[in-house]
Amino acid sequence: MSTETHTETQVPAEHGGGGNFPPFDPTFYGSQLLWLAITFGALYYILSKVALPRLAGILEERRDRIASDLDEAERLKRETDQAIEDYETALADARAKAQKIAAETRDSLNADLADKRHAAEAALADKVAAAEQKIAGIRATAMGEIEGIARDAAAAIVEQVASAGADAGAVEKAVASAWAARRS
């Protein structure tokens, strides 16, 4: 064996292009073809019967699992959306109801208040009118009395000053004019 290789190395490579160049040496063609057929056949058999179905199964299972998980997620999302919608509806209903109750209460309270205010205003107006009437009466009486008192006082003053009986008509005239002057 070793002598063989030695002779080969001493021979230039170009020379070995025909017979000695191992890839073109037909000595082992039969052996290579046979063993290639055996090994590749075995590989093909093992892969197609065991390894590839197993790998395909794994990938298939994962794909199914992901798909079903996605479906589940989709379903849950739909449920969530539904729940949110329900909640929103309930909330809107409750809000509308609350607003209605508030409006009704406000209206009734307003009506009640208005009634009471009207009644109170009417009562007050009556009282004011009565009081004004009374004041006018008292004023008129007082005015009448004042004129009498002034007349008497003037007569008394004139009597005192003149020591003679005052002419009642003159006094009255004077008082009336004085009064009128004061009044204007």
């Binding site: 046979l34 290639l36 090994t39 590989l43 390894a51 197993r54 790998l55």
Partner: peptide
């Protein structure tokens, strides 16, 4: 008259098949 010896080439063909098989079977 045919030489079908188990050669180093055959050995590496067998090794290749064994490695591929081992890889795929162990992996899965």
């Amino acid at each position: 008259s045919l030489d079908v010896s188990f050669t180093n080439s055959s050995l590496f063909m067998v090794a290749t098949v064994a490695a591929v098989t081992l890889f795929l079977v162990l992996a899965t």
